[in-house]
């Protein structure tokens, strides 16, 4: 996966930087293998985006971020990118209204969930929850 594909709010680990003319600039600014980077925000037109690199905010165009290979952190997987398996909800990226909505569906931090064939189930009562892509992006999971 490359950095430009990571949804907003997610932290990931840098794996490798592909050979690009700005490779040395990226390394110098702190985008080095094994460092952890957070996707902070996107500009109004979706490109470029801001990333947190060692506590500094760095902007990158998506074409530039696509040269950076990343991997998900075990404890920080957005629902949209989670493969089948069992997880605990570790965080929500959203305001109070979003949290309320999630609570009404039975989802809160610490809830154990299961993903099977791209569908989300609450383990406790095996209840199936269907969510839109936008909502899924805001739910962060940790592998059990």
């Amino acid at each position: 996966m490359t950095l430009d594909k990571v949804p907003i709010g997610i932290k990931i680990k840098i794996k490798n930087i592909l050979d690009t003319p700005i490779k040395q600039r990226l390394l110098g600014i702190g985008l080095i293998p094994n460092s952890i980077v957070e996707v902070v925000n996107s500009s109004p037109m979706g490109d470029p985006r801001v990333y947190r690199v060692f506590n500094k905010l760095i902007t990158l165009r998506n074409s530039e971020a696509s040269q950076i290979e990343v991997e998900l952190l075990e404890e920080y997987i957005p629902l949209t990118l989670a493969p089948d398996g069992e997880y605990i909800i570790s965080n929500f990226i959203g305001g109070s209204r979003f949290l309320m909505k999630m609570r009404n569906l039975g989802l809160s931090i610490g809830t154990k969930v299961k993903i099977l064939n791209n569908s989300l189930y609450i383990i406790k009562n095996n209840k199936h929850i269907s969510l839109g892509h936008g909502m899924k992006e805001k739910i962060i999971l940790r592998r059990i």
Partner: peptide, 8 residues
């Protein structure tokens, strides 16, 4: 291209 590797 003019890169946009810029600090905020």
């Amino acid at each position: 291209d003019v890169p946009l590797v810029m600090e905020l």
